[in-house]
Amino acid sequence: MSGQTWMILLSIALGTYLIRALPYVWMARKLNKQASQGNVSSTPVWLTILGPTMIAAMFGTSLVPVEPSLLSWVATVIGCVATYFIWRRTRSMGYPIVAGVLVFGALTVFFG
């Protein structure tokens, strides 16, 4: 890698880190300030909505199969249904994910 490419890499690495760290520092200071003034420290309402919707959006993008085809879409839907039913029974994170991957994998292997 040339010196210029290293410079680009380090700039992106630093920029990405700052994008992750600075908003946290800003919010932590805001909450501390509220607490020191005797107010109940609270996150802005729009942020408490945006957090869960970001997760839902990640779910949406992850639903698109790596190699889209009828089989991969059907396997994705059935895998999600399996994950849902195991989640309803166990209310845990591990078992539903394992079940979903197994069902998805079985369909991909047997019908692929």
């Binding site: 909505i49 869960p52 919707t53 997760i55 839902a56 990640m58 779910f59 992850s62 639903l63 790596v66 190699e67 991969s72 396997a75 994705t76 895998g79 999600c80 994950t83 849902y84 989640w87 845990s92 994170m93 539903p96 994910i97 979903g100 991957v101 998805f104 994998g105 991909t108 292997v109 692929g112």
Partner: peptide
């Protein structure tokens, strides 16, 4: 590379589901 990535939608699904506990949040999600 085809099967293992399904762990991600399954993971996100179990994180989304608890939030869908009322009509407003379900529509939102």
């Amino acid at each position: 590379s085809e099967v293992l990535p399904f762990a991600l939608p399954a993971l996100f699904l179990v994180m989304v589901l608890p939030r869908c506990s009322d009509r407003r949040w379900t529509i939102t999600m």
